[in-house]
Design a protein around this nucleic acid. Structure first.
Length: 575
DNA sequence: ATAGGGTTAG
């Protein structure tokens, strides 16, 4: 008989007490009752704990492990602490408790709060002879990855003897989350070579990697695998990942095809497609698709609203923007977030309606965040309203939240520099140093002839780095000696190489640039996916690149795509 | 008599 409610559980408990712990029926019921109390959403963790502490419950590792498992699933960190103290008492006593076993570790690993604790547990795992337990090791790999210890995670993975799909998927997923999609993709390839069967989870992870890297060719291959094996039937999450991958690799049409074939579209599928259209400059289509979604009976969530608002913003539809903002709560029960308000502010600011933007911010029911201030400051800078920019910079500086955000500081220092207030700029820089803010290196990835190349600022790791630098020097030299050469140097000349413009380009971008010059000789589209930190960077870079290649360019920054035709950006985006 | 690891949009 199944236990389904707490009152039923209490009845059983009474019966158990009556029968006594020695009774067979009683002990079977006890385990049922306990499992229900600990794990069922209708159960009660504290009650399970009481049961464990009562002397009728046998010293059996099952009960301890189950309770630790229950604690580990909770989002409440004090539960993790409780799990830990249970674990410790299992290790050391004082009472004769069951020793931690192979079941204990996967749960307790989930409870560790930092990588030091994790390493201690890892040591116990080894000491107690569980170093070849796949479940435990997979849990370790996952946990190390979550703490950003990808090096250790990778090492543990490498040293494993019998890796299975989960091991591979875990490390791949960890690399994707750690912004190392290229390595993730590499591992996926080795996994295929090694003949490991991939499943739906693997596919979703590797598709995320492809999306991040703009790796269309591998993305397509994965799509092929999905079709071949029919893995997609299980749910819409693969479809969502595929749509996202195509969108971020610059292929809305392919994304749309996948989208149209999804029979039971959920909110994720719709939202991703709406984002896809909006980010490719098809803003009105995106808005239409939003209405289609609502008509089909799927309720938009917070993210959907953000996406449709950003479509309005990119299209310059202020009226619609306000309308959707009002509808969000009334029609769809979505509480407006800072991103939602941010869209309206962004739109006003871009159009140069800076006072309106400022007024809007002061009437918002939510406290503006650093991103919002930055949007405003940037717009002020573009529209030459430096007084207002300075006022916003002050607001930004007051905000503790921006303390860990080096982007804000850099923006602030740029504002000061642009009006020649070098003292203030120096102050900001100093503040940054004091807080130990180091800007993470910029990186870019480019797919040329089916190969994704990654460049990190200041790196020399590209296999053809030397060649690339040589080529770059050669070009620069040529410009110096011969001046203008319309074939290759138009842009470099125009931007005044030595003086300033090249400073806008990171090392990585120089590499990509030069590499493109050497290698890219055919095709009409170049996909470049960049993790740029601001639209400013993005546009500077892309203006250059698209002129050099003399063809259409699609580039993605953190938020959206920018289309460049003949060196002109076609989306209404700051420009 | 009884359990375990990896899961989607920026």
């Amino acid at each position: 008989m199944e236990v389904t409610t707490m009152s039923h559980a209490l009845q059983l408990h009474a019966q158990i007490v009556k029968l006594g712990p020695q009774n067979d029926v009683a002990s079977r019921n006890l385990s049922k009752l306990f499992t229900f109390a600990a794990l069922s959403p209708a159960g009660n963790l504290n009650y399970a704990r009481l049961l464990l502490n009562s002397n009728t419950t046998p010293f059996n590792s099952y009960y301890y492990n189950t309770l630790i498992r229950a604690y580990s699933r909770s989002s409440d960190p004090t539960h993790h602490t409780k799990a830990f103290s249970l674990f410790i008492s299992m290790l050391r006593g004082p009472h004769p408790l069951p020793k931690p076993d192979n079941f204990t570790f996967p749960f307790i690993i989930k409870c560790s709060c930092n990588h030091f604790t994790l390493q201690q547990i890892h040591a116990f795992v080894t000491k107690m002879g569980f170093a070849s337990d796949r479940f435990i090791i997979n849990a370790l790999i996952h946990a190390y990855s979550e703490f950003g210890e990808l090096g250790i995670a990778h090492k543990v993975f490498d040293e494993m003897i019998d890796r299975d799909v989960v091991s591979w998927t875990t490390i791949i997923d960890g690399l994707v989350n750690g912004d190392r999609p290229i390595e993730a993709m590499g591992l996926f390839e080795s996994m295929l070579e090694g003949g490991v069967e991939v499943n739906d989870v693997t596919v979703v992870s590797v598709l995320r990697a492809c999306a991040d890297a703009g790796a269309l060719s591998l993305g397509k291959r994965v799509h092929g695998i999905v079709k071949e094996k029919g893995i997609a039937c299980k749910g819409s999450n693969i479809s969502t990942a595929l749509i996202d991958m195509y969108v971020k690799s610059g292929c809305v049409e392919s994304a749309r095809k996948v989208f149209d074939d999804v029979v039971d579209k959920d909110v994720f599928v719709w939202t991703t497609m709406i984002f896809g259209l909006a980010s490719h400059g098809q803003c009105e289509e995106a808005i239409d698709l939003f209405y289609e979604m609502v008509a089909s009976g799927v309720k938009p969530d917070e993210r959907t609203i953000t996406v449709v608002l950003s479509a309005c913003r990119n299209a310059g539809f202020l009226r619609e923007c306000n309308m959707f903002l009002n509808d969000a709560e009334k029609l769809y029960g979505v509480k407006p977030t800072i991103q939602h308000f941010g869209c309206v502010v962004d739109l006003l600011a871009r159009e140069g309606r800076l006072k309106e933007a400022e007024d809007f911010v002061s009437t918002m029911p939510i406290k503006p965040d650093a991103v919002l201030w930055r949007t405003l400051i940037w717009a002020c800078k573009v529209h030459g309203d430096i007084d207002r920019a300075e006022r916003f910079v002050k607001k930004l500086e007051l905000q503790e939240k921006s303390a860990d955000d080096s982007g804000s500081y850099i923006l602030a220092s740029n504002v000061y520099a642009s009006v020649g207030k070098w003292c203030n700029k120096a102050e900001v820089r100093e503040l940054m140093n004091k807080k130990g803010l180091i800007k993470p290196p910029g990186s870019s990835r480019i797919e040329v002839d089916g190969v994704v190349h990654e460049f990190v600022m200041g790196d020399y790791n590209h296999p053809e780095a030397e060649k690339i630098y040589l080529k770059l020097d050669e070009i620069v030299d040529k410009i110096r000696k011969e001046g203008y050469d319309p074939k290759v140097s138009e842009v470099l000349l125009e931007i005044d190489y030595e003086e300033k413009a090249i400073q806008l380009l990171h090392h990585s971008e120089k590499l990509a640039l030069a590499y493109g010059l050497i290698k890219t000789t055919e095709g009409s589209k170049i996909r470049i996916v960049k993790n740029l930190r601001s639209c400013e960077d993005c546009h500077e870079f892309m203006k250059l690149i698209s002129k050099i290649f003399q063809r259409d360019i699609i580039v993605r920054d953190r938020i959206r795509f920018h289309h460049f035709k003949n060196g002109v950006c076609s989306c209404k985006d700051y420009w």
